[in-house]
Amino acid sequence: MKEFFSNLILFLPQFFLGSILGMFLSVLGIILILRKMAFFGVTLSQVANFSFALSLFLGFREESFPLIFSVLILVPVFYFTRTTKSKSDTVLGIIFVSFGSLAQVLLSFGGNVQNHLLSAYFGDILTSEIKIKSFMLLVLGVNIILFIFLYQKIIFFSFDPDEYKVRNYPKYVEILFLAIVTSMLSISVNLLGSFYSAAQLIIPGFTALYLFRKLFLVILFSILLSFFATLIGFYISFQEIHYKNETIFLPTSSSIVVCLATLCLIFVSFRKWYTHK
């Protein structure tokens, strides 16, 4: 345990960023789930993935480019899913596979495709050179403040969008909320991979909504679950595993996702068992 904490201190910036991003994504995810937009969130992670690949392809090394691309792509994607006559989950499925594949195609131009792909999908929080740049912190900070400021409006809009519009509440709230989700996903995909981002977006919120009926408790539990899964995931990835005469370390982002899924399974099973008892 002592060794774990000394390792954790070594990777404190990564842990700090991973947990803050995860916790914030888990809160945003609750609203997406309640609005039955979970798949939209997962699709956005592929859009962010594509933006990350596009920035690499165009040679834009600044972190701001994937974020700007993601937000720019969000508007037509959102408009398209809302105005199409087909079912939106069908359209989202098409966007998901298209942007995922496009990202792969673009990444293949950069050489060393496998590493890039692994990094884009699963993240490499420990191995890559993570610098908590002021730009990312600024976006994270602004988004959190904006979300807190708009929280009640977002809840009202999500609960009853028609009445929200009829009463003439600000119309920009929905697009601003989606811009917050997209920009956070963009940063998260860039640093931690799209699987980690999508998992943090959906699993804690789903588990919390399954267990609790008060929004405050749902949010609190979701944040705690996200944090502890990140902590356990880091712990697991620091452990040496001896397998077939080799020493291996499990990948951090994927370990966190597996932890999240396992904790979700445990809590949901416990709740089912408890209610049937």
Partner: peptide, 30 residues
């Protein structure tokens, strides 16, 4: 100014909110 009472089926009642929260939500949003 307008307000609309929708049909019950059009509302997402899976929201983890109490009746009181539902009644006060529009006011809180302001």
């Amino acid at each position: 100014s307008f307000s609309l009472v929708p049909q019950v089926k059009n509302i997402n009642f899976g929201f983890p909110m109490s009746v009181k929260d539902t009644l006060l939500l529009p006011r809180k949003a302001k």
